[in-house]
Amino acid sequence: MAVALLLAVAGLTACTDAAPSEKEAAKPAASASSSAGAPAPPSCDARASWRPTKGLQIPAGSYMQTIRDRGRLIVGMSQDTLLFSSRDPFTAKIEGFDVDMGREIAKAIFGDPDRLEIRVIPRSERINAVNRGTVDLAINTMTTNCTRWQQVDFSTVYYEAGQRLLVGKDSPATRIEDLGGQRVCAAAGSTSLENIGRVNVDPPPLAVARTDFGACLVAFQLGEVQAISTDDTILAGLAAQDPYAKVVGPRFTEEPYAMAIAGTHRDFTEFVNAVLERMRADGTWAKIHDRWLGDSGPAPKPPAARYR
């Protein structure tokens, strides 16, 4: 119990820029409880990325050339986020919306979408992995926000998600505010974990951190937590694996997904944005959406690119 609380507090960096709805942003308790000297929330337009200047060209000396010389694109992903990047138990291959995004980038560099190496990284390690150069970029249902922009660069937004709640089939809870004092799981290093701590209810829900959302589902099924709260997209994948779980409540945050790239590789960020431009325009984005998320209805308009 004490450990869970510690983890919960550790997860509460004073970051209120993930565009949570107004009432959470207005709540002072969250920043008060994180006395670890976190900086004041930076303000920026987290959705705005670098405008492509050279299109899909790969100039000599660019980071894309480095990747091309290596012979493969290395992407940091998860292996248990169903529909986005999860391991198919039958084939042992990692597949999903995020994987297909990575394949499109590999195709733009090599002309071959299979020139892709997937490295599984814990959510709490994504920024480190990008900055250390362990991976070229992280495509991992990752929310772009201003705190993170201080450490890495992001591409333009490629998917709009929002945080919701997964509870047991017979739970009376309909929103996260109904779970005051109860244990709610999210992955360590995710914005979801931070958001659970900011829910404006007394007592607040106890945020329980696990390595990834698959581990959260294990904890939920073993009765160690009463609920899981994260992006609706991830919850849909979890609920699909457990007929005794249901996703409830409104989206109480906005989670715009973007790809994380080291700040030193601005040319690569521009290139990735150019690839995303093309995918939005030529229908590739819609095709990938239909392939993985088609059950949730017809493909919406892809999120519009914003540039700084």
Partner: peptide, 9 residues
């Protein structure tokens, strides 16, 4: 059953 959460278990 082909459920990826098996890996997490």
């Amino acid at each position: 059953q082909g459920k990826p959460v098996g890996a997490a278990y």
